[in-house]
Measured scan of single mutants.
Amino acid sequence: KKRTSIEVSVKGALESHFLKCPKPSAQEITNLADSLQLEKEVVRVWFCNRRQKEKR
């Protein structure tokens, strides 16, 4: 499966949402994916990866 490159503006939106809520619910992920026009899975994985980055 190909990697999804996320635009800078979208990254900013994801980042600001992450600061408010690092573990969004499935519903929040769906809403966020719809508003940013990304697949739910891409948003879910982004949050997962971002939480791991926070641990490092």
Rank of each mutant, 00 (worst) to 15 (best):
K53I: 09
T4R: 06
A26E: 13
R50Y: 01
N49P: 01
F47L: 04
N49Q: 13
E41N: 05
L38T: 07
P24F: 02
L14D: 02
T4C: 07
K55P: 06
E39L: 02
E41D: 14
P22V: 03
K20A: 07
V43G: 00
A33V: 00
V45N: 07
S16Q: 13
A26V: 09
G12W: 06
E7N: 14
E28P: 02
S9H: 15
L14K: 00
V45Y: 06
T30M: 11
K40T: 10
K2T: 13
L36G: 00
F18S: 01
R51K: 03
I6N: 06
R50G: 01
V10G: 06
E28W: 03
V10K: 12
S25R: 04
C21F: 04
F18K: 01
K11I: 13
K1C: 09
K11A: 09
R56V: 12
S25T: 10
I6R: 09
E28L: 04
C21Y: 04
R3C: 04
S5V: 15
T4D: 06
K2P: 05
K40L: 09
L19Q: 13
K20H: 06
P24H: 02
Q37C: 08
V45H: 15
L38R: 01
N31I: 13
L19S: 11
A13V: 15
I6M: 09
E15L: 03
I6P: 13
H17I: 07
S16K: 14
A26H: 14
K1S: 08
L32M: 10
S16G: 11
L19E: 10
S25Y: 03
K2F: 14
Q27I: 05
L19C: 08
A13P: 05
V45K: 12
T4K: 08
E39A: 08
S5C: 15
C48A: 09
K55H: 09
S9Y: 12
R56N: 08
N31D: 14
V8L: 15
L14V: 01
V10Y: 08
L19M: 14
S35P: 02
R50A: 04
Q27D: 11
E54D: 14
L38N: 02
H17D: 04
K20N: 09
R51I: 07
S16A: 12
A26C: 09
S35L: 10
V45C: 07
P24G: 00
E41F: 00
E41M: 03
S9T: 11
H17N: 07
C21G: 04
C21S: 14
L14Q: 00
R3I: 12
T30G: 10
Q52M: 07
K2E: 11
L36H: 04
K20G: 05
H17F: 09
S9V: 08
V8P: 15
V45P: 01
E41L: 03
E28Q: 08
